[in-house]
């Protein structure tokens, strides 16, 4: 947190090193979030790229309220939601889920490799987008419900109910998978 404040302070004074450090620190986390939300690595990469370019344009005026990770995660989630709306006409279900990590360059850049992670990803993909978004932001990005509510512009009760319904549905799906 203190490190982030120092980085933001330097970033606001035009330090490229600070921007590079912020990118290095959060790039993987944000890309993972975008991939989980959109199920498309190339689109996820575009989103993370756009978020950082937009963030770079706020140099000198950016005011850190809350956590930097929360802010960047919110930016990614908002852009992912917009992309999701744009392609809402197309099928975004399991049939078109791109194999995660398929476009990574080398062995050190592999995406979700484990079978379990892939399975969770498939399970999350079965949830409605809104529920998936809240679950991922809370459990993966560590954002509190209040933060999520503020970021998404909805009430905290809505966030909590989406989260609860999402977990219920996830449990049901898991149970059905286990039963089979």
């Amino acid at each position: 947190m203190v490190e982030d404040k120092i980085l933001v302070w330097k970033f606001n004074r035009g330090s490229k090193d600070a921007l590079r450090r912020i990118y290095e620190k959060y790039k993987d986390d944000l890309l993972g979030l975008a991939i989980t939300l959109l199920k498309d690595r190339s689109v996820a990469e575009d989103i993370v790229h756009d978020v950082f370019v937009s963030f770079a344009q706020t140099t000198g005026t950016y005011h850190l309220s809350g956590t930097l990770k929360g802010y960047l995660s919110t930016c990614v989630a908002n852009r992912a939601r917009d992309r999701n709306r744009l392609r809402s006409g197309t099928n975004t279900g399991l049939d078109v889920v791109e194999a995660l990590g398929s476009s990574s360059d080398g062995p050190t850049e592999h995406a979700i490799g484990s079978e379990e992670s892939g399975r969770l990803d498939d399970l999350l993909a079965r949830l409605p987008y809104e529920q998936r978004e809240v679950i991922v932001l809370h459990l993966h990005q560590g954002m509190r419900f209040r933060e999520i509510a503020k970021a998404l512009g909805i009430s905290i009760n809505t966030v909590q109910s989406r989260y609860r319904y999402g977990l219920d549905k996830l449990r049901t799906i898991l149970n059905s998978v286990v039963t089979k």
């Binding site: 921007l19 993972g32 770079a56 344009q57 476009s103 850049e109 592999h110 459990l139």
Partner: peptide, 30 residues
């Protein structure tokens, strides 16, 4: 859900593209 958080790494191409564009945007803003 928490323990199965996906661990993704960015590609070098993506890093280069993002950082270059971000630096350019930053300079332009300044």
């Amino acid at each position: 859900v928490r323990v199965r958080k996906p661990h993704v790494t960015t590609s070098r191409q993506m890093d280069k593209r993002t950082l270059d564009d971000s630096f350019a945007a930053m300079e332009q803003t300044i």
